[in-house]
Computed example of a mutant assay.
Amino acid sequence: MLWIDKYRPRTLDDLVINQEFGSSLKKLVSSGDCPHLLFYGPPGAGKKTLIIGLLRQIYGPAVEKIKVETKPWKIALPSRNIEIELTTVQSNYHVEMNPSDVGNQDRHIVQEVIKDMCKNRPLELKGARSYKILLLNEVDRLSREAQHSLRRTMEKYSATCRLIFSCSNVSKVIDPLRSRCLCIRVAAPTLPQIEQVLEHVAEQAGVEVPGKLRTNIAQKSERNLRRALLMLETCRVMQNPMTDDQQPQLPDWELYIQEIAKDIFQEQSPKQLYAVRGKLYELLVNCLPPELILRKLALALMRTLDDEVRHKCIDLAAAYEHRLQEGQKAIYHLEAFVAKMMSEYKTWSIAVLG
């Protein structure tokens, strides 16, 4: 088991950071009822850890007895019947799912599958907590139709079900959905907080982390706690005992994106564009979000670009990031960004370098 899961805080009292949120959530639960909640913040800020602690605070340790189930759902539409396969993580008290995994069929998941789950009240729970919790991850990636469908579900089944949403970009969640939830912003941890967590995890794992290496990992983590813990464990696997001059290893996919950036500078031709497209496909089939690929590729390009071309790279990255949200095929927009950048770079190099 990875350290990020093995040493994750299980209760709100075990939190190393975000302790103020833990105290507020405990008071919320002690009031006897729990509203619909929306946790939002950057990746690696601790949203999932807070939600796990909240579930245990409500239902006790029995909520950790979970099972992973992939189930096909048959949905009858007016014109045809469709079958959607969805993976859920569930206990007797909660269900966790990611409806955006099914793409443009997510509205059917909201309309049919979630409604079916909300109708079933936990039999062994009585009193004020006789409700089931439905946890939806990446709700900001849901289509507009799916988000509007959730409005009615939240109102109709509020007696038997509470919804907890988790997302990175709250601006992509419609206003009617946000107004029905208690919104909790989980900010990215500061560098001293990341160092504090690294020291805490290292102490639990029985390893010693030099202070300079701990600071170096925190700086390269981009304030992402999940990334920092994975880098710490990678350093532990590569070298034991760890030393001050040891360099944290970047993820393989990030090094691969840096290779793509070098390919763009090396040659600007249809043949090179075709080769880059194959590498982009490889990143997508390994389940990397296209928005992350685009952002990391733009940053890798800007480290080498001249100031005259750098602002064009930023404009293009912003434009194609917007197109990614509107379109269905991510590869089209990623390839178009690469083609446009090749054109801009070649035009600049001919004009300046001859």
Rank of each mutant, 00 (worst) to 15 (best):
S158H: 15
L77S: 09
D175Y: 13
L232P: 08
E282S: 09
I217K: 00
N18Y: 05
Y256I: 00
S31Y: 06
M238E: 12
H200Q: 05
P35F: 03
K340N: 03
T347Y: 14
G32D: 11
I52M: 09
Q90I: 01
L2N: 14
K48T: 14
Q325V: 04
Q239A: 07
P189I: 13
A228D: 06
Q266Y: 05
L316V: 12
E344V: 02
D175S: 11
S30D: 12
Q90T: 01
M341Y: 04
I331D: 05
V113I: 15
Y345W: 10
I174G: 08
I84P: 02
T11H: 13
L125F: 07
H311L: 10
T243R: 04
D140R: 12
S343V: 06
N120D: 14
P289S: 04
Q219M: 07
L292S: 05
I51R: 04
L2S: 13
I75S: 14
D263C: 11
L135S: 02
G53F: 03
R178G: 10
N104G: 12
T49E: 03
A317G: 01
H108R: 12
N240D: 10
K212R: 15
H108K: 10
H322F: 03
S31A: 11
I217L: 09
P122Q: 09
L292I: 07
E155Q: 13
A275E: 10
L12T: 02
D33R: 01
Q266F: 08
Q57P: 10
A45Q: 03
C287E: 08
H148W: 12
G53Q: 01
L288P: 00
G46R: 00
L15N: 06
R80Y: 06
P290K: 05
L316W: 04
A187T: 06
S24L: 06
N286M: 15
S100H: 10
N240H: 13
V68E: 13
L54P: 08
A202K: 04
Y59I: 01
H36T: 15
L299M: 13
D13G: 05
